[in-house]
Design a binder for these strands. Sequence first.
DNA 1: CCCTAGAAAAATGTATTCATCGCGGTGAGG
DNA 2: CCTCACCGCGATGAATACATTTTTCTAGGG
Lengths: 245, 245
Amino acid sequence: MKTDGANTHTRRALSELRKRILSGELPGGTRLLEVHLAEQLEVSRTPVREAMSRLAEEGLLERVSSGGFAVRSFTAADVIDAIELRGILEGTAARLAAERGVPPERMDAFFDIVARLDSCFPGAAGEDLDFERYSELNAEFHDALARLPGSRMICEEVGRATSLPFASPSAFLPDRAAPDAFHHSLQLAQEQHRRVAEAIHAREGARAEALMREHARLARQNLDYILSQDRSLRHQVPALSFLVG
Amino acid sequence: MKTDGANTHTRRALSELRKRILSGELPGGTRLLEVHLAEQLEVSRTPVREAMSRLAEEGLLERVSSGGFAVRSFTAADVIDAIELRGILEGTAARLAAERGVPPERMDAFFDIVARLDSCFPGAAGEDLDFERYSELNAEFHDALARLPGSRMICEEVGRATSLPFASPSAFLPDRAAPDAFHHSLQLAQEQHRRVAEAIHAREGARAEALMREHARLARQNLDYILSQDRSLRHQVPALSFLVG
DNA sequence: CCCTAGAAAAATGTATTCATCGCGGTGAGG
DNA sequence: CCTCACCGCGATGAATACATTTTTCTAGGG
């Protein structure tokens, strides 16, 4: 059978399954049956198996003891702990970068990301805030931070901690529907970005670590807000739509 | 074809491959060829694939971009960072347990492990130190600590950080060949065990965290000692025999 | 009425075969 | 002599048939 375009059957199955899990179409706890999925996706069991195996690596599926896979289910407490863990690990990345030192070029590149983030905010002219660009640069900032210590183990560990959708640094950017809190929250976040970069540059490890831990708390704050609202709201947030409860 | 005994072919392939990787028989960077391994293990490619997939989850293999797997290679710096990460995460487990509180029964059980560790040391009667038992209880202590906060995410993250052989809490227990340093090192470790339990009980989160971070440094100290010795020594240490360099 | 043992159904585990992709060697042309 | 295209080999990707295990349903006995 021909593999359509650049994508193998495994890749198609992978993204299709991921989509169904994240959308909540496959709720937590659902046992995934190879035959059934193979029929639905119109491929054989082999690529389905391969895709499920990779989703288990991602943390979206769990292996069932008797064989096969089930959709992992996450509670609100799991989301909170995942955010806490991200703060811990990004804090560690920041501290190690400070303690071990960062080559000037890489430090410059890091400051540059902060500067570009600054430029997303409205200036005296009163333009709009460029939310799309902020979001992208925010992801870039967190990615660059993980690489700053120049350690493969750190980078991978931070990567894993941020791989689940609700643990991603961009998961709970503040809600644009509430302009005031929204703007304030983003400015606070950016202030923390700047201070972390400064702290790393000044080799202030403990400060850099504490700042990144607190930075993650912003995500938790936004999460708490969303959870306190009507349940319908949390189904509009992609990272939460597949939560149990 | 019949599956021999209680083990499936996948399981056999899994442990056989793991053995070959850890023993250094398959050095880091080696590309694993399905056909070749299937012949050697006298099974078909299917269970070999499955086994490789699981070893990738364990972190012993990495997926090659063009498809297939290669043995992951670790440098001394990777080992150091892995130990550091274990300290960070176990420290977090200790801090969270302290901050969130631990039910009395579980706290009692935790103290009991510490007490049993105490009983491994020679008393006034001057018996021998029970190294085997200490080693087992040490593993039990670290496992129990990871569960203390009652958080699945924390427990799993600590589990991953300790899953690589050289990151395990039992990886670099001091060398029995050097009795003095050996005994001193173990007593210091046990003192830290005791203090961590106390700190958690007293809800002293920061202290508990700092103690566990320092506790992991004992492993690094023993690692440094081993690495400073003749190269032949590090091939006697199972957790290091498959390192590059 | 419940519990258990056994058989049937359905799921995963495994082998085999074919298809497709990537890479390296080789030869012709510039 | 260098470059590029093509071919062939060897690898993984995928499909399918078969084996084994797990689960479930049912019938029988306590």
